[in-house]
Each structure stands twice: as structure tokens, then as C-alpha cells.
Design a binder for these strands. Structure first.
Length: 413
RNA sequence: CGGGGUAUGGUGUAAUGGCAACACGCUUGCUUUGGGAGCAUGUAUUCUCGGUUCGAGUCCGGGUACCCCGACCA
């Protein structure tokens, strides 16, 4: 991709009235645009990052969880919420059909997926079953905050599982923990993201969250550094010790964290509301056990910006970076163009800054955008038939012979 | 939803109640090319409704939007 073809631009001034680091950097670098409080457009590079995060999640959902991807609607009939008693929860956006029906915008999809599965599940032979989607959620937050970490409209992966027995559910639930750990590891935040015991809210006695340690997080957790598990502050008084080793509350580390994922046992809470049942081997009708499993895709993106950014800008982990390499020409476009094509030919996702701008501006902008590898072609490097290579998160530079570039990039991507 | 703050060209800021200014950006031209270049040129601004006043960006009231703290948060 040539930067001269971009319709977005970077800004060097801090965004006015924006204390949130992720919002400031993502807007200045041209990844997102704020339309109103808590509502963002994702611009080409922002969308690329979002898609890469999605794909890492999708792969685990499909392969580890054996789940099937669907896309459910954002418009939901209010009567489904009346059936579950959730028609008055305060994050709901209400709207109406012109013909008179009452609707809400989807904030989660239990009220859709449960009746949906009712059309297909009737026998124990139809179970277990997992369906997931990556979809926009709407929550009428009284106050959105922290940039894309807490919006009124955001992208979420939600998986729902259906089982004949509690035991079958539990097995799947345990598998989801493995899948989630895999996902956060692949996203580059595995070593600071921990499973955390939390309340089950209105659904059940307990649930689990995946909390990424960060000072800007809204949550407070009691962390056991031996077992790498935590307890959310909201339930610490009910269970004041590490569930793994029994270490007491006073010996646990209190940390702030961002909830990037959560998993809930739903038991028969929703299958009861919609009468989702199956017939067992004896022809007896029984309720379906359910679980739900969420990951905030856009929130993960914001979290990664917060965690890795430095004073110059964003630092993307290579797994989700919008491009592998940022190729920059210091007014040596003919020579750089050849290198650009060569990189494209071997499958490198490269952003090429071919614009007529000063070196300082190009480098400052490159740091702001945060692509993992920067390659500079200048008069200086061409004298020695090299390009200068620098990693975004390291200070030292090295010079690679132009003839060896292809081999070099194959190793790094 | 309670509390606090802010609103001026595209962006960031300035302006005792008295001619709305500066920088960046953008246009055009020339120069420049290793850390957001230089000269010249053109361009564009007081959130909204009302009030006070000879006169309001500035004071007062309503509204709206945005930011922050808290509450809330399947």
C-alpha cells in the first residue's frame, strides 16, 4: 500500500479534550475517527488491525472450540427480552418499527440465539453445539469513557454453547479457558492477561473474566502471582483467598486491570425462558444447558495500544500490526519502488511512504503509526547498496544488503 | 444519573466589554532532504437560542455537544 494513496492523515497535535491515550493515538495516527462520545469509525488501517484480531479469535473458536460462525441481527424484538425479564436493563437502546413493533438494539445475543437454536435442537443427538459471531453490540452507557475501551457501540465476539448435561457443559467451559489463553497469547498480551474469578451477575453464582493488567483498567483484582489467577474485587469478600493455592486475601496483589474477555455458565436460565429442550435417549424432555463466552474485539485493540505505546506513538505486536514493514523513501523513489515490489512479491504486507515529505516528518509519522519494522532507503544507504532496518520497539538500527532483503524479511514476518 | 470543566478557521491555541490574532494544515511557486524544513503566495474561524449593553468571543440565562471524577456496567 502506498501512503500517497491514503485518504487519512496523521496529526501532530494532541487531540483536544481527549485524556485517553488509546483514543488520542488511534485518532492522531488515523486508525479511527470519533463520531460522538463512545462511537467510532474504523479507518482502513484500524479496520486491518480489527480484522487481524478477529481472525486470531476466529481460528480458536473454530478449531479449539469446534464452533460455527453465524451473524445474528442487531435489531431484536423487545418481546424476547420480556420473556427473559431483561426488558428493563439500563443499557438497552429502545426503538420501534414504523408498523408499531417494539425493538431493542442488541447488547448481547442470548435472546436471539436461544430461540434460534430452538428451531434446530430437539434431540440429544443435536448436542453439544457451539455458535459464535463477531458483531457490533450497542449499550446505552450513561457515560462512555477511555476511548475505544468502553463505547456505546463496539465490536464483540460472542460464543454460545448448548449441552445436554451440566457435565458436558463443564468440559466445554474448561476448553474455552484454554482457547482464551491461546488467543491472548497470540495477541501478544498473554503474559499480562489472567483468568479472574468474578460474580455471575444475574445468571449464576460465578463466572470468569480475562483481565489484562493495566493502570488504566476499570477493574480491581486480587492477583495470586504464584498461580497466575485473580479474584475480582467485587467478590473478594465472599471468597477471600486464592482458589488454587488458598493464599489469603492480604497476601494477594491488588492490581488494576482491563476486562478483555468473560465466560459465563448460563445453566438453564435462558433455555427455561424460551423452553429450549431436547429429548434424551429415553424420550424424556430435558432442558438444554448453556454457556456464553465473550471477547471485546475493539476493546482488545485499545488495550494493546495502551499497553505497548511509548512517548512517540503506537507499538503494534506483529501479529496484529496493520502492516509488517514500513518502507520509507527519502526522496529516492525509483530505487525504493523496486524494493517495494520485491517485498510485495514475497508476500510482505508493506506500507510504502512514497510521499514528498521531509525525513523528520516521515520518521515521526512512522513512529506514531507503530508498524513493527521500519526500512529506510536514502542516498546514504544506497551508497552501500543497503536499506536501514529498525524495529519499532528497539533503538538500534542495522543495514541489510538490498540483495538480501527478501531472505531477511522472510525471517522476520 | 450526581458532581466538576470546556466550547474561537480543517487542527492546536490567543484575544481588559471596543478592528478576532498566531502557529500548524491546505493551495500555488521556488529552494531543501536523516527526526514533524525555508521563503513567498492564497485560503478559511467565535456551538446554539435568548438577555444585558451604544457595543458581547468575552457578562447573564436556557439548550446542545465534548472531556474528567463518581455511580452504573451480561
Amino acid at each position: 500500500m502506498k501512503q500517497s494513496k491514503f485518504f487519512t492523515k496523521t496529526r501532530k497535535e494532541k487531540i483536544k479534550d481527549e485524556a485517553s491515550l488509546n483514543a488520542d493515538l488511534l485518532m492522531r495516527a488515523g486508525f479511527v475517527n470519533k463520531e460522538m462520545a463512545g462511537v467510532y469509525s474504523f479507518l482502513p488501517m484500524g479496520l486491518k488491525v480489527l480484522r487481524k484480531i478477529e481472525n486470531i479469535i476466529r481460528e480458536e473458536m473454530t478449531e479449539t472450540m469446534g464452533a460455527h460462525e453465524v451473524l445474528m441481527p442487531a435489531l431484536h424484538p423487545l418481546k424476547n427480552y420480556e420473556a427473559t425479564g431483561r426488558d428493563k436493563i439500563d443499557v438497552l437502546f429502545y426503538t420501534k418499527l414504523n408498523s408499531g413493533g417494539d425493538l431493542v438494539l442488541g447488547q448481547s445475543h442470548e435472546e436471539i440465539v436461544t430461540p434460534l437454536l430452538k428451531n434446530f435442537v430437539s434431540s440429544y443427538k443435536d448436542l453439544p453445539c457451539g455458535v459464535f459471531q463477531v458483531q457490533t453490540k450497542f449499550r446505552n452507557e450513561l457515560r462512555s469513557k477511555s476511548g475505544i475501551l468502553r463505547g456505546r457501540e463496539f465490536l464483540m465476539k460472542d460464543l454460545y454453547s448448548f449441552h445436554a448435561t451440566q457435565e458436558c457443559f463443564e468440559e466445554y467451559y474448561e476448553k474455552s479457558k484454554v482457547a482464551y489463553h491461546n488467543i491472548f497469547r497470540k495477541l501478544g498480551i498473554g503474559d499480562i492477561t489472567f483468568i479472574s474469578f468474578a460474580s455471575g451477575g444475574t445468571f449464576s453464582k460465578y463466572s470468569h473474566e480475562f483481565q489484562t493488567i493495566s493502570e488504566i483498567g476499570e477493574d480491581e483484582i486480587y492477583f495470586c502471582s504464584d498461580c497466575k489467577v485473580a479474584i475480582n474485587k467485587e467478590i473478594i469478600d465472599d471468597s477471600p483467598e486464592c482458589p488454587e493455592c488458598g493464599k489469603k486475601k492480604a497476601d494477594l496483589e491488588v492490581k488494576r486491570s482491563i476486562e478483555v474477555g468473560n465466560i459465563f455458565p448460563l445453566s438453564t436460565r435462558f433455555s427455561d425462558s424460551f423452553n429450549l429442550t431436547y429429548k434424551d435417549e429415553n424420550g424424556e424432555e430435558k432442558p438444554v444447558y448453556m454457556g456464553c463466552y465473550g471477547i471485546g474485539v475493539s476493546r482488545v485493540m485499545g488495550t494493546i495500544v495502551e499497553i505497548f505505546a511509548d512517548e512517540k506513538g503506537i507499538v503494534w505486536p506483529k501479529e496484529i500490526a496493520p502492516f509488517h514493514v514500513h518502507l520509507i523513501s527519502f526522496n529516492k523513489n525509483e530505487e525504493t519502488e523496486k524494493i517495494y515490489k520485491e517485498l510485495l512479491d514475497v508476500g510482505v504486507d508493506v506500507l510504502y511512504d512514497d510521499r514528498d515529505k521531509s525525513p523528520g516528518e516521515k520518521m515521526a509519522e512512522s513512529d506514531l503509526i507503530g508498524i513493527p519494522y521500519r526500512m529506510i532507503v536514502s542516498e546514504k544507504t544506497l551508497e552501500n547498496k543497503t536499506v536501514e532496518v529498525k524495529k519499532r520497539n528497539e533503538d538500534d538500527v542495522k543495514f541489510i544488503n538490498i540483495s538480501e532483503i527478501t531472505d531477511y524479511v522472510k525471517k522476520i514476518i
